[in-house]
Design a protein around this nucleic acid. Structure first.
Lengths: 127, 127
DNA sequence: CATGCAGTACGATTTGAGTCGTACTGATTG
DNA sequence: CAATCAGTACGACTCAAATCGTACTGCATG
């Protein structure tokens, strides 16, 4: 298993050192609305695979804004892909002032599609 | 693990016996050419998910021809989807006389993308 | 309050996938 | 060898997704 474990065991306390009242997440499918074909479709794009993998491997408990990824695409393209991930139920997005930060819905995805995120974490582009 | 290992309930009669020397498989990617994004893309279609799942759960050691699935689509559409699966590396196809039979490349996929086929086997349409 | 900045909205364009009808191929069998 | 049958090839159509430029919104900070 290569994916870093964020919360080992049973965390009774909220881990993220975020403000107690987080901004409400943008609209997203509920855990029981997650559809395998939709999730796989969203992950069938190399750029989105890059985004999710980077979130899985390099995000240190914090959400990340669009710019953090260093993706060489116009902003409108990034909006498109981040929305695709959110609407498929793969990421959750919250508005923090100017920034719209994303993180992977690890718990939900592990519950519904166990093993899937490990495949994403193990993915490497172009090889 | 829900995916069946091999012959669960013994088939009464071996309806389609295979010759000792199998026909050569149709062109397909090698195991080291399998790409996660391509595989996920091929599996992001409900009809193809249905095909692969049915092969995983109901095929008793034998390959199956197009007609076995009982899919209510024109033949040219089926050709399209079966080719998509083969070219993504998910199925292997062999020509048996008139019929072109398919089976899932379980070993290859389990080796490259462990857990993926379990997700497919657990999938249910429309729910 | 004015400026700047993160990101969206909208629309145009392009590309690729799904769908399917029709004509075809190639093996099987009478 | 002719009929049949499984499946393909080809092409047309449709639709959704990717891409991206430009204009916009709304928060933030001086």
């Amino acid at each position: 298993m290569t994916r870093p474990v964020t919360t080992a065991g049973a965390p009774a306390v909220k881990v993220l050192p975020e403000p107690a009242d987080l901004p409400a997440p943008l609209p997203e499918p509920g855990i029981d609305e997650l559809r395998l074909e939709t999730v796989l479709g969203a992950l069938s794009d190399p750029l989105r695979l890059t985004i999710v993998r980077k979130l899985l491997l390099e995000s240190e408990d914090f959400d990340h804004s669009c710019g953090w990824f260093g993706l060489d695409r116009p902003k409108s393209s990034l909006t498109h892909h981040f929305r695709a991930l959110r609407e498929a139920g793969i990421t959750r997005q919250r508005q923090y002032g100017l920034e719209r930060r994303s993180h992977v819905r690890v718990e939900d995805l592990d519950a519904r599609f166990p093993g899937l995120l490990d495949l994403v974490a193990a993915w490497t582009p172009q090889g």
